[in-house]
């Protein structure tokens, strides 16, 4: 699959509130950031799959905004792959904490964020 097709496949799923990822049919490696070859074994035999949306926080940081607000940003591990995303939380989220994927709209497109479990 070429990048353009991958992007389309990703956007279709994200817009439907589903979190896509790529799995290599050759070595089973899973990754999120789309490219046409597996970063582990270079196979071009890849499949777009959908995550169950349950994840754990790998790391996070609370960013102080210039307008006085705060946003939480992190690396989150879903089923076998990790992504950078913002984390919706109440200040108590921590490394290892459970999250569920949620989606935010930006310029007409949806993108994943993680919502910390209460």
């Amino acid at each position: 699959m070429k990048l353009e097709e991958l992007w389309r496949a990703y956007h279709e799923r994200l817009d439907a509130n589903r979190l896509p990822y790529l799995e290599c049919k050759a070595c089973k490696h899973r990754f999120y950031y789309p490219r046409m070859l597996c970063p582990r074994c270079s196979s071009t035999s890849l499949e777009v799959k959908e995550s169950d949306g349950r994840g754990k926080i790998f790391s996070l940081t609370r960013i102080q905004k210039k307008d006085g607000g705060r946003t939480t940003y992190g690396i989150v591990e879903f089923d076998g792959f990790r992504i950078y995303c913002n984390v919706l939380e109440d200040g108590k989220a921590d490394v290892g904490g459970d999250v569920s994927v949620a989606f935010v709209e930006l310029k007409g497109r949806k993108y994943p964020v993680a919502r910390a479990d209460a």
Partner: peptide
């Protein structure tokens, strides 16, 4: 990055936030 389409949608503060993630962990 080649992944800007899905990376730069985040509300981050690079490079500070990326090193902050390393420091936090």
């Amino acid at each position: 990055s080649p992944f800007d389409e899905f990376l730069r949608v985040n509300d981050d503060l690079n490079p500070v936030s990326d090193y902050a993630l390393a420091a936090f962990r």
